[in-house]
């Protein structure tokens, strides 16, 4: 029996149903797991995504190409192939794509996490035969701290900065991470303001019914903002930019899973690093893989080779899949694929 999905130069393709999942070239029909730049590229004829993800996907692809949506858990037949979308817990509207035909079921996760996150629907394990999983943080050194303790750490830092008359700046990806961080903040400490790129996504989140603390846009041509008390949410690309000047003296932090490592924290040179990730940590990957009951696992992103080797040693049929998903990368200088500022035209290349 041929594989239900196969890797083509344009991305992961279902020949039977004639559709792609997160293609990196322009195709006819694209099913999109979530709106991050390494998964959602402009230029395809027609898109399908989970219903809560429509607004952010529209912003990402720009064009007027039709976007079909599907509520989580409902299925649709595409050329006789059964397709359904299930929460991935990554960002607003992120979905695992379940594809089933002729007694064969595949699940493609896109990016996912298992931690509780009030800004998006929680990850839901889906039984399958073949599990295509991300592995951004697929090394055993990555084990996320409890979100409540990270929230306490962030708020304590904010409070200390406020007391010293310094603004607190957290660099976080505009889509997903910034909203998640916002949800961890204690708005009684001071005002929360955001960069325009973050603000646009905050509005989409609010329009989709996600509750976030009050956040103000930084007014254009402002001379001074926040009075040394504010929490500023900015995309990583704003680090070191003139835009930060209006906040006066600042203490700067990065929110990312990579902040787990001392060397990375030091290399990035921020005052603080908070371990907040929208990807699964190593125990999370193991747990998710086991929950699917899949006998075959294909790993994408980051540490695909290591993860596949480990799973093979543990008796699964596992391999790395050479996709163009980049996820968060450890060495980048802030202009991540997961960041909104990155060009979305790469798909044409």
């Amino acid at each position: 029996m041929p594989d239900l999905l196969e890797l083509t130069p344009a991305g992961l393709y279902c020949p039977r149903g004639d559709f792609y999942i997160d293609p990196w070239r322009r195709v006819g029909r694209a099913i999109i797991t979530h709106a991050h730049a390494d998964h959602a590229r402009a230029g395809s004829d027609r898109y399908l995504c989970a219903a809560p993800g429509k607004l952010v996907l529209r912003t990402r692809i720009g064009s007027s190409a039709p976007i079909d949506t599907l509520p989580y858990g409902e299925s649709l037949s595409i050329n006789g192939v059964e397709v359904s979308l299930h929460p991935a817990g990554h960002v607003l509207g992120s979905a695992q794509v379940r594809v089933s035909h002729g007694g064969q079921t595949w699940v493609v996760t896109g990016d996912y996490k298992l931690e509780a996150d009030p800004t998006c629907a929680a990850f839901e394990p889906v039984r399958c035969d073949v599990f295509v999983t991300e592995s951004t943080f697929g090394l055993p050194v990555y084990r996320w701290p409890d979100p409540a303790s990270v929230a306490a750490e962030i708020n304590a830092w904010w409070r200390a900065n406020r007391d010293a008359g310094r603004s607190s700046v957290i660099f976080a990806y505009a889509l997903g991470k910034a909203q998640r961080v916002a949800a961890l903040l204690d708005p009684s400490i001071g005002p929360i303001v955001a960069h325009g790129a973050v603000m646009k996504m905050v509005e989409h989140y609010r329009a989709s019914g996600v509750r976030l603390p009050p956040i103000d846009r930084v007014p254009p041509r402002a001379r001074r903002v926040g009075d040394g008390r504010a929490m500023v949410l900015a995309p990583p690309s704003a680090a070191g930019s003139r835009w930060l000047r209006v906040f006066g003296e600042t203490s700067e932090a990065m929110a990312s899973g990579w902040m787990m490592l001392r060397g990375v924290r030091r290399r990035r040179g921020f005052d603080r690093g908070f371990v907040v990730s929208d990807h699964a940590d190593f125990p999370g990957l193991m747990q998710a893989i086991a929950a699917t009951g899949a006998r075959r696992v294909l790993a994408t992103h980051g540490f695909a080779d290591s993860l596949a080797r480990l799973l093979r040693e543990r008796g699964l049929d596992a391999a790395a899949l050479a996709t163009k998903f980049t996820g968060e990368t450890v060495g980048d200088s802030g202009d991540d694929d997961d960041d909104e500022s990155t060009s979305v035209d790469e798909g044409a290349a």
Binding site: L139, P140, V141, G263, S306, L310
Partner: peptide
């Protein structure tokens, strides 16, 4: 081997 790979990644 996985510990070694992790070490190569972490550097410490």
């Amino acid at each position: 081997w996985l510990l070694e790979e992790s070490y190569a990644h972490v550097g410490d």
